[in-house]
Amino acid sequence: MIKSFIRKHPYGAAILAALICTFLTSVGAAITQIAVLDEVPGYLAMSAAVACSILIGFLLMARSGHSLAFYGFRKPASGSVKKVWLFAPLLLLEIVPLVLFAPKFQEPGAFYLVLIVFTILVGINEEVYFRGLVFGFIRQKGPKAAVIGSSIIFGALHSVNALSGTNPWAVLLQIAFAFLAGLVLALIVSITKSLWIGMLWHTVHNFISYVTETSLDRTALIVVGVQVLVMLVYAIGLWRAGTREQM
């Protein structure tokens, strides 16, 4: 039944998978707010919800009729990651906030330990769904359709959080970053055939975002603007590289 639905309705299956991921992640956040949990138990509750989401994602992969390797659980394709520029922009994205908003690490050690677990799980979860399932479902329509479709779905769902902001420039920049991040991560999967690079960057980016979290003043907006610009240039470069390799 699942195989048939995916084959007949790849875009519907992709959207449904993305909504499952978003819903299960939201459940953990809702429990934390309703129970008024402190930071450490709150992150533990959210981690448990994300872990459940990951397990369901693997179950969907198994029921889809394809192997885990089909969805990106494999080594990067031979020669696909030899070029330094494939990683340099991702490194630059994280260096900028670290330099300008150096984390103080004033919380207890348990907080950072739980935060690391949470960000690792979130990184795995979102790559399993958006670059694994969503990308894999749409790929039957062609690799370019998979890249564009998965990035639109990822950007649209992540843009919802940005819309709650009050600064219009911050909202626009965060929405732009969400769409471009989805595009870049999808292109990396298309070129390398692997989820591992995306999972690693996603985890590092989320952790740094949490420990350097600051008010959206002028400096912070400039940083996000620089990150959006880097992502845009990077996406163009990856698209051209993917096209040359008949993505």
Rank of each mutant, 00 (worst) to 15 (best):
V147P: 02
L216H: 09
P103V: 05
A110Q: 11
V224M: 14
S164E: 08
F179H: 04
A241T: 13
I208P: 11
L24R: 08
I2Q: 13
L24S: 03
V117P: 07
L100D: 03
H205G: 00
E39Q: 14
A69G: 06
V224E: 13
G198H: 04
A14P: 08
I175L: 06
A235W: 12
S215F: 15
G65N: 00
Y71T: 00
F87M: 10
Q174V: 14
I138G: 02
M61H: 11
A102D: 00
Q227V: 11
F154T: 10
F154L: 10
L187H: 05
L19D: 02
G182H: 12
P10K: 11
V189K: 14
L121E: 02
A29C: 05
V184R: 04
G79N: 06
L121C: 07
W169V: 13
A178F: 00
T214P: 00
I222S: 08
S53I: 05
P10A: 07
E245G: 03
P10M: 12
L173F: 04
I197A: 04
F58M: 09
K144P: 01
L68W: 07
L55M: 13
P41K: 05
P103Q: 06
A13H: 05
F101L: 07
W201D: 02
P76T: 02
A110P: 00
I191W: 07
L183I: 06
I31C: 10
A170T: 13
T203H: 00
T219H: 02
I2G: 01
V50H: 08
I31Q: 02
I95M: 14
L91G: 11
L86V: 14
I208F: 09
S190W: 06
I124L: 15
A62Q: 11
N167H: 06
V96N: 01
P168T: 05
T166H: 11
V226L: 12
I222L: 14
Q33C: 03
L229V: 14
M199R: 05
A48S: 10
Y210F: 12
T22V: 13
G142Q: 09
A146C: 10
L115Q: 07
S53K: 06
P10R: 12
I191E: 03
I208W: 07
K83L: 13
A110I: 12
F135R: 04
P97R: 06
I20K: 05
K104M: 15
A102P: 00
